[in-house]
């Protein structure tokens, strides 16, 4: 057992705990914070089913962004769609036997690796080229893109330039999941890749990556437009009614 194996095992246990606990904390916090007023951005659906459909269009097609800015939409769809395929492709490292559909995704996931990096570079480029976006960009906005691009590039590097022993990598992760630590191949590209991924997991629940759960809790998007039919009352606001 090398020091690197122990380090990465510990890192991924820690990162997983932070990601899961952190996200759970934020999601519970969002869910428990009341939305005292009806504020859907109208025109809005008048039924729960309609709201589900609106949310689906928002998270799957980025409907509002499409209306807003075609270039951001193109790069954002490219990046997020590709990231989804890449993540699905990576499920093969965590399943034995590999789920059948994960097998189908493999070739797409490979090309998606490039698409993801292209999307990221497009989004990053806007932060330099477009004056308005340059103005609002913080160092963390750049670092986040660097982190994701680094993950993509180091992954592609292992696939196309410096191969690593992916069978051993899989054994390492399956081992982690069974609390039976297996040796991690010694490979600089892999070390970089895994470090960046763990970092992403750690910053997820305390950064703007919270937009992922956030969108589902956005009252302008998830509320039904029915205030005249149904009295909407938050607990802290209901108390006021009893004080009259």
């Amino acid at each position: 057992m090398t020091a690197a194996t122990i380090f990465f095992a510990a890192l991924f246990y820690a990162a997983t705990v932070i990601l899961v606990v952190g996200l759970a904390y934020k999601i519970v916090d969002y869910a428990r914070t009341p939305a005292p007023l009806k504020i859907p951005t109208t025109p809005a659906p008048t039924t729960g089913g309609g709201v589900a459909l609106r949310m689906l269009r928002e998270v799957a097609l980025f409907e509002s962004l499409f209306k807003s800015n075609l270039w951001i939409w193109v790069f954002a769809i490219l990046f997020h769609g590709a990231l989804l395929l890449v993540l699905m492709r990576h499920l093969r490292y965590f399943t034995e036997p590999v789920w059948f559909w994960v097998g189908w995704v493999q070739p797409f996931g490979l090309y998606a690796g490039f698409a993801m990096v292209v999307g990221l570079l497009g989004l990053w480029g806007r932060r330099f080229v477009v004056e308005r976006i340059r103005y609002i960009s913080t160092p963390s906005d750049h670092l986040m893109l660097a982190l994701l691009a680094g993950i993509g590039l180091s992954g592609l590097g292992m696939r196309f330039l410096l191969h690593t022993d992916i069978v051993a990598v899989k054994a390492f992760f399956l081992g982690l999941m069974r609390f039976d630590i297996q040796p991690l191949p010694s490979h600089p590209g892999l070390y970089i890749h895994l470090t960046l991924v763990a970092l992403l997991m750690i910053v997820f629940p305390m950064s703007k990556l919270l937009h992922a759960p956030g969108v589902f809790f956005s009252p302008t998007r998830n509320q039904v437009d029915n205030p005249r039919q149904k009295r909407h009352l938050a607990p802290w606001a209901a108390e006021l009614d009893t004080r009259n």
Binding site: S68, V130, I133, I136, K208, H211, G214
Partner: peptide, 11 residues
Amino acid sequence: VYLDSCVHCGA
């Protein structure tokens, strides 16, 4: 949610 969620996309 709104203070947390903005990604500075610029839209």
